[in-house]
C-alpha cells in the first residue's frame, strides 16, 4: 500500500502510447500543508469498504482516506474534486485499448496529491464522494431545520 506518499508522474511517449511511470518517494519531510490534523477527534462523514471521509472541526476541513492515502480538502475543494471525478468518462476508459486510457490522473489544486485511478478506483471513489456529499448536505439541512424549529418553538 502506498502510505502518505506522492506519485511523480512522468509521461513518456513510448511507441504510440503513454507509458506512465509512477514512483513513490518518501515524503514525510515534505508534508507541510498536508499535515494530519493531530490531537483532534475527526468525525465520520461517510465510510465505505474502500475508504472514508472524515471532518476535522478544528481546521474546518475534510480528510479523504482512499487507497492508503490521506488528503485534506476544504468543503469547496472536496466538491470540486467530486465533480472532477464524476466527469471521468468510464465508458471511454473501458472501450479504448490504449495504455493511456487505463488510468486517469487527477492532481487536485491545493493538495500535494496525485491520484492515479483505475476504473475500479474511480467507481469506488465516486461512491465514496457521493455518500460524503450527501451526508454533508444532510447535516446542513438538519441543522437549518432544527434552527427553524427553535424559532417556531420560541415564538
Amino acid at each position: 500500500m502506498i502510505n502518505s506518499g506522492f506519485f511523480y508522474v512522468l509521461p513518456y511517449v513510448y511507441l504510440d502510447s503513454f507509458l506512465i511511470i509512477c514512483y513513490i518517494c518518501d515524503s514525510s519531510n515534505r508534508l507541510g500543508t498536508q499535515m494530519f490534523c493531530k490531537n483532534v477527534k475527526l468525525e465520520d462523514v461517510f465510510e465505505s469498504e474502500y475508504g472514508a471521509v472524515r471532518q476535522c472541526n478544528n481546521k474546518n476541513c475534510y480528510w479523504l482516506y482512499f487507497n492508503g492515502t490521506q488528503t485534506k480538502f476544504t468543503v469547496r475543494d472536496l466538491f470540486l474534486f467530486k465533480n472532477r471525478v464524476d466527469q471521468i468518462n468510464i465508458e471511454k476508459m473501458l472501450t479504448d485499448s490504449s495504455v493511456s486510457c487505463d488510468f486517469e490522473i487527477i492532481m487536485p489544486f491545493r493538495t500535494e496529491r496525485c491520484f492515479v485511478l483505475s476504473v475500479c478506483d474511480i467507481v469506488r471513489l465516486k461512491e465514496l464522494l457521493k455518500g460524503a456529499k450527501f451526508m454533508i448536505e444532510l447535516n446542513s439541512e438538519i441543522k437549518s431545520c432544527l434552527n427553524r424549529g427553535l424559532y417556531i418553538v420560541n415564538n
Partner: peptide, 14 residues
Amino acid sequence: MKDLLKLKSSLSEE
C-alpha cells in the same frame, strides 16, 4: 457535526 457547508457559503449549490 459542525456545518462546514454553511460556514463557507450561504448559497445552496443549486
